[in-house]
Design a binder for these strands. Structure first.
Ligand code: ZN
Ligand code: ZN
Ligand code: ZN
Ligand code: ZN
Lengths: 121, 121
DNA sequence: GTAAACCTTGGAGTACGCTCCAAGGTCCAG
DNA sequence: CTGGACCTTGGAGCGTACTCCAAGGTTTAC
């Protein structure tokens, strides 16, 4: 499919798609008139970009990750090491999020308690 | 304490501290010669910035959050609503992280399986 | 054959979060 | 009173991730 349809399907602008292409994502095949072509696999890549971005990875990190997902070319030891370190990073982020969540929850509880006290006085 | 000592204690550059100050963080008290002063409370703020950043919040989001943490001035209903929405956002991020973690884990398992098969052939 | 709806490139501009000057004031030790 | 280690401001520059625009080629539809 062409860039307009592709962009609509993945929910971003055509400019953004071209930008991702420059970074190194997608199959980069063109028809004779120069128009970019996108496949279902590119849709999966776009979904991975969305996921990665939503959890705070940079486009370059996501690119490296998606290349490890492709595997086959890379040697297994390297790919496994990289995937494992990515998993460790994710675990750290989850732990961080939980810490901040706890902080927010405590503050929320505190705020409610103060409010209740104010109302009872 | 002065900016140099403060920056060292929180582990960032003095430029970064001044930048955070411009954004709106810290107590912004100065001595007569114009030097910035920082307190233990500012250390806590800096820690909050570090946590917030590590989990993908922007400085403005962290600023809003830290102001809600201060509370007292704001009305309770508003503060509670905002804290709750922040907790919901954190929960979404945790869910996203877990999804990507699962993807990575599957790929890792797959990579190991392929490697094992290659060795046995 | 021309209008509309596509596509192309390049380059400029934006917001964020720094980072690095330059030029100069302040403070303290010897 | 001079050197060195602080501090100040302002402004430039940078990497990331877009976003917008101008100028122009292609395709399809009437
Ligand atoms: Zn195609
Ligand atoms: Zn409250
Ligand atoms: Zn002080
Ligand atoms: Zn493998």
């Amino acid at each position: 499919m062409l860039i307009g349809e592709f962009a609509k399907r993945v929910g971003v602008s055509t400019d953004t798609i071209r930008f991702y292409g420059k970074v190194g994502f997608f199959s980069s095949s063109r028809s004779e008139n120069g128009y970019r072509h996108y496949t279902e696999k590119d849709i999966e890549t776009a979904d991975l970009i969305a996921s990665g971005k939503s959890i705070g990875f940079s486009l370059r990190e996501i690119l490296a990750f998606s290349q490890e997902m492709a595997d086959g070319v890379l040697d297994h030891a390297r790919a496994q090491e990289s995937l494992q370190s990515k998993i460790n990073l994710i675990d750290e982020r989850i732990a961080s999020l939980k810490r901040v969540r706890k902080l927010a929850q405590q503050q929320l509880d505190y705020c409610r308690a103060v409010e209740a006290q104010e109302l009872s006085v």
